[in-house]
Amino acid sequence: MQHSRVTGIGERPALRIVLVACTMVLMVLILVMPLAVVLVEALRRGIGSYAEGISSPDAWDAIRLTVLVAAIAVPLNTVFGLAAAWCLTRYRFAGRAALMALTALPFSVSPVISGLVWVLLFGLQGWFGPWLRAHDVQIIFALPGIVLATVFVTVPFVVRQVIPIMQARGDDEELAALTLGASGWQIFRRITLPRVRWGVLNGVLLCNARAMGEFGAVSVVSGHIRGLTVTMPLHIEILYNDYNLPAAFAMASLLAAMALVTLGVKALLERRQTAGV
């Protein structure tokens, strides 16, 4: 006994097999089956009805709107995320902790509330409702409201990914560049950005997945006007409530594919990050 290495806890073969088996069962039950059911339900009536489901005019409008909203929200939050991470990790100033907390706040707010806040500001009886109405500006039940709700929900993704990386890296290299005469923009482009780029990509990826998939917040501000304010996640709900299940699941399969691609790319990025490329 003294000569042999101790068997670590959980290393007994029987226990190992049981634990791995439990893990696999849970993975299939919780994670694999919801994905599988989407695909099976989407193809239940055959490939023709699937193609019909994703190529109807309403479906196309939903896809276009979803891509448009993500194309506005993701770049906004990326630029903000980089600026805020730089500001919050490279300087000490009063109120820094409060700003730091604010960047994470939308994560802990219910999606419905993330939509509600915009209705309370810009809705018919909201704070600015009468003024907007007098000037014939429509925010709620229109594109601007959907964009604002999506931006709110996705604020934390990039900034919260980048802050820990910038903190861990420290600012020695940036200070060295400064003493060598580099400008602020040069320091950012040549030193900071290359070091945080995988984190930024990771954040952008998750930000995009959430922007394209946000349901609760968008549902509150959208008004569900077909062809105008219905995004893909909302279109699924409408089709589902119309008992048009094949079309609902066809649309769902597109978003599920988006989620899988997101996870795949994320896994690749993480492998690169740990490889230290």
Partner: peptide, 18 residues
């Protein structure tokens, strides 16, 4: 390891109908 994050990447209405 990749699938564990599925609930974060899968839109909630897709999760709901599934």
């Amino acid at each position: 390891d990749a699938l564990v994050d599925l609930p974060l990447a899968l839109p909630t209405s897709v999760a709901g109908v599934a």
